[in-house]
Each structure stands twice: as structure tokens, then as C-alpha cells.
């Protein structure tokens, strides 16, 4: 285990951007490492065409409220989500932004902002729709919340058997995020041994 601090993560964007899936990857990584965790999606009409968001808590203690109101990490995939949640990030927290989708970055100097053009990066690599997985890769690079091997296993667990042909694409998207050096980069983890991009 790389990091034992409790981590409250909020992922937000449009419905269909893979917000819930990205949250699931983080949650599965926690499960694989035997940690306490919760994954709570927004649900109902706001999921249809509106904003989707997802709270993920990782901890070594039982989790109280699974609803993340003051995130340590915000992953924002569109401008409305970034505008809505940027102020709620705790001082010293991290904001990971899909900069393809967000023209304006928050004006806060007490948090670290990592803009990643993930939608563009994914499309350029033929991985349309996997921008959220790119951001999970970036998040792991910058925050090191789990062992990369655990996250790879999480990808294997989360890609349903019916969509097994997408496994390689998900791994590739994750790797693009892990290798992304834009913004403030303080890499705390490297690619796992024997990692082969597909």
C-alpha cells in the first residue's frame, strides 16, 4: 500500500463521460488492496443529460458519510462541474481537469490543479469515450492512492466479460494518463513491472 491516508474523491462530468466507471476503477483498486471504501453515484433525472457525479472514499477506518462534500481530490470533466465543485476542494487538495472540456481553470492558489486534455488524448489514440480512464491514470500518477498493479486488476474486474475486447483499450487509456507530464508532476509511482501496453 502506497498511501494510508483516507482519501475522499469526487468525480463529476456529463452523463456518458464514464464518471461512474472511473469511480468504480478507484473503488475496485481499494477492494483489491483490502481497504475500506464506498462508491456513491448521483442518481435519478440529473443523470440524463445533466451532470453525473460520483463520490468515492478510500480509508483504513470504517467510512462514515459516503457523500463527499469536501473532496481531497476533484476529477472534473466539464466546465459546469468544475465551476460547481472547485471551491469545495479542501485546501491542499488536488483538482484534475479534463482541459479539452474546460476552458477556464479555477483561481485558487491553495490547491494543485492538473489540467489534462484527456478527451483529446483519448481521441488521438483511438480511445474515444475513455477520457475518464486517462484521468484515473493521471490521478494515480500524481496522488499514488494505490499500487498500479491493483489498478490494473481493477480494470480487468470492471470491464465486463461481454466487452472483453475493450480491456486493452482501457489499459492503454490508463497508461496515457500515467505517462502524462503536463501540469505539476510529482510522480510517486511508476508503471508496474512487466506492464505491456496493448
Amino acid at each position: 500500500m502506497i498511501m494510508a491516508q483516507p482519501l475522499n474523491i469526487l468525480l463529476a462530468g456529463f452523463g456518458g463521460q464514464g464518471i461512474l466507471f472511473a469511480g468504480k476503477l478507484i473503488a475496485y483498486a481499494g477492494l483489491i488492496e483490502g481497504r475500506e471504501l464506498s462508491w456513491l453515484p448521483s442518481y435519478g433525472p440529473e443523470m440524463r443529460g445533466g451532470t453525473a457525479n460520483c463520490s468515492v472514499c478510500l480509508s483504513d477506518e470504517p467510512i462514515g458519510s459516503p457523500l463527499v462534500l469536501e473532496p481531497d481530490v476533484l476529477v472534473a470533466m466539464n466546465q459546469p462541474s468544475l465551476d460547481k465543485f472547485a471551491d469545495s476542494v479542501v485546501p491542499g487538495g488536488k483538482i484534475i481537469v479534463d482541459s479539452t472540456m474546460c476552458a477556464r481553470l479555477p483561481e485558487r492558489d491553495d490547491v494543485t490543479i492538473f489540467p489534462v486534455p484527456s478527451t483529446q488524448l483519448a481521441e488521438d489514440a483511438g480511445l474515444k469515450g475513455l477520457a475518464s480512464v486517462v484521468l484515473v491514470g493521471k490521478m494515480l500518477r500524481e496522488i499514488g492512492f494505490c499500487d498500479p498493479v491493483a489498478l490494473d486488476q481493477a480494470i480487468v474486474k470492471s470491464v465486463p466479460a461481454k466487452k472483453a475486447h475493450l480491456l486493452g483499450k482501457n489499459r492503454k487509456a490508463f497508461e496515457i494518463g500515467m505517462l502524462n507530464e503536463d501540469g505539476d508532476s510529482s510522480p510517486v509511482c511508476s508503471l508496474p513491472d512487466g506492464w505491456v501496453a496493448e
Binding site: 468504480k24 473503488a27 477492494l31 475500506e36 471504501l37 464506498s38 462508491w39 456513491l40 453515484p41 442518481y43 467510512i63 459516503p66 457523500l67
Partner: peptide, 10 residues
């Protein structure tokens, strides 16, 4: 309640 129904935990 809706929170317990919708959330995932181990």
C-alpha cells in the same frame, strides 16, 4: 434508504 441502496461497498 436511497443512499444504502445506491452505494457500493465491499
Amino acid at each position: 434508504d436511497g443512499m444504502l441502496g445506491q452505494m457500493m461497498e465491499p
